[in-house]
């Protein structure tokens, strides 16, 4: 009888172990996948910027400085290698773009241009998508970390040691603001 109970206990622990392991693995993959999703959206932004610059260039002759900053930031972001570099470069780009949008407000003739309105809509959408992708990534990382750190999972993780902690995609406070009147109130909750 005692043997039976011990056997049942061992079976239970093994089943729990398998379930936890699989859950951790699937979470890890989800985290990696969501990081790739950010990449896809960033690529989209990189592709859109040259179009915007070429359309805006003629009208905004006096703002060469702002435009150049955007172009440089884009070049840096495209060529960034390591993850931390990438995060920094993208934050720079977001800032530069935000400034460009703010300056564009001073040129009413840009607003009547159908092409620019289209591009701006596309860029707004892309900014939102990047924001959402990042939000999803951070949510998943938080889930993954919680799953690793709660008792008794932490012992299990230390025993196997195949799960590394993912880093959050952090943005500077300034960069968090999307350059648009309506979205400025976006509490972090």
């Amino acid at each position: 009888m005692v043997g039976l109970i011990v056997l049942a206990g061992i079976v239970l622990i093994v089943v729990w172990g398998i379930v936890t392991f699989n859950r951790l693995v699937s979470l890890r993959n989800e985290v990696q996948n969501s990081w790739k999703q950010i990449d896809v959206q960033l690529k989209r932004r990189h592709d859109l910027i040259p179009n915007l610059v070429s359309v805006v260039k003629g009208t905004m002759e006096f703002e060469q400085d702002t435009l150049e900053k955007v172009i440089n930031a884009r070049a840096k972001a495209v060529s960034a290698g390591s993850m931390q570099d990438k995060v920094n470069a993208e934050n720079m780009l977001t800032q530069a773009l935000g400034k460009l949008f703010a300056v564009m407000e001073n040129y009413p003739q840009l607003k009547s241009n159908q092409n620019i309105m289209q591009l701006q809509e596309e860029l707004t959408s892309t900014e939102n998508r990047i924001g959402f992708a990042r939000q999803l990534y951070n949510d998943l990382v938080a889930q993954y970390r919680i799953k690793q750190e709660v008792f008794p999972n932490n012992i299990f993780v230390a025993f196997f040691g195949v799960f590394n902690k993912e880093v959050y995609f952090e943005a500077e406070e300034e960069a968090r603001k999307v350059p648009q009147a309506d979205t400025s109130i976006r509490p972090k909750s």
Partner: peptide, 20 residues
Amino acid sequence: DDLHKRLKNIMAEIHVATGN
């Protein structure tokens, strides 16, 4: 249609937010 295009973009954004 520009507004419908915007709606399509918004749908794509929601797809991203929900992880596709």
